[in-house]
Amino acid sequence: MITVRGLAKYYGAYQAIEALDFSISRGEIVGLLGLNGAGKSTVLKILGAFLVPSAGYAEVAGCSIADNPQAVRRAIGFLPDSPPLYHEMSVDAYLAYVLRLKVGRLSRAELERQRDEALDRTALTAERHRTLGELSHGFAQRVGIAQAIIHKPPVLILDEPINGLDPVQIVEMRDLILSFRHEHTVILSSHILSEITRTCDRILILDQGQLVAQGAEAELAKSMRGDKKITATTAQDPQAAVATIKKLNGVDAVACQQNARGEYELTLQATADVRSQVAQQLVAYELLALSTAEAGLEALFMQLVSAAPRRTGEQA
């Protein structure tokens, strides 16, 4: 449904995204994850035929963005990072306006049917006569979603849909996005890792304009080469043993710090289960606890985005 090959975008001399390659299948919900300025919004604006790429090829719903932007615009619903609302209009009038803008001429009965459906799906029926300027951020964001889905586009492009929502609204928005599964192909962006993992089938991690990893959460976690986080607690200071532990086969990094109870916590990043060797080294320091956990997506994300020096003057 979405194909991207060698996509690049420059803002003057600044390269916002470079040589991106990915594809998204029909009915998938895919998340673009990255820090602020990673290039997420630029990618979404290009897929929304809002921006023309500087290089590369992008196709949405079988239509080339460069050659047939109007067909792409017909096939998408777009929610920018801030919902595009006219504050003096009512919810009803606004949605009717957007629907006509998207599909052109249509009968009053059809307009009302599609508008009612969008209002129903976004739970806005009770607010339909309210002026947009009076709505809370949560409702405004829902109107933003309603305008994106009102013409039933096969592809939904949502830029930071949970941005600025409170915890209850986040849950509601998550459920709403999940309800689009199989009906729409969804690509959304966020810098909130936990939300992306809960909502999306697949994640694309962007850093400084480059696609540094992609896959389902489980696949990405596997790509940590079986990395483990081992935590040991001792009653006595194990500093003397740290150097030996660091030399153990499979240990990447070791950190030691004292907790509030006066105990010493040793944290190891390791590619193998070295708990028994660590226990042998720490037993002399009154080992109190020893545990292991698979390194999660958060560790991978931090590893990927902290590898390169940060860019400055970023636009997207």
Partner: peptide
Amino acid sequence: TIVLFFTSP
């Protein structure tokens, strides 16, 4: 709101 025009046909 200009986004609305630029992402509409």
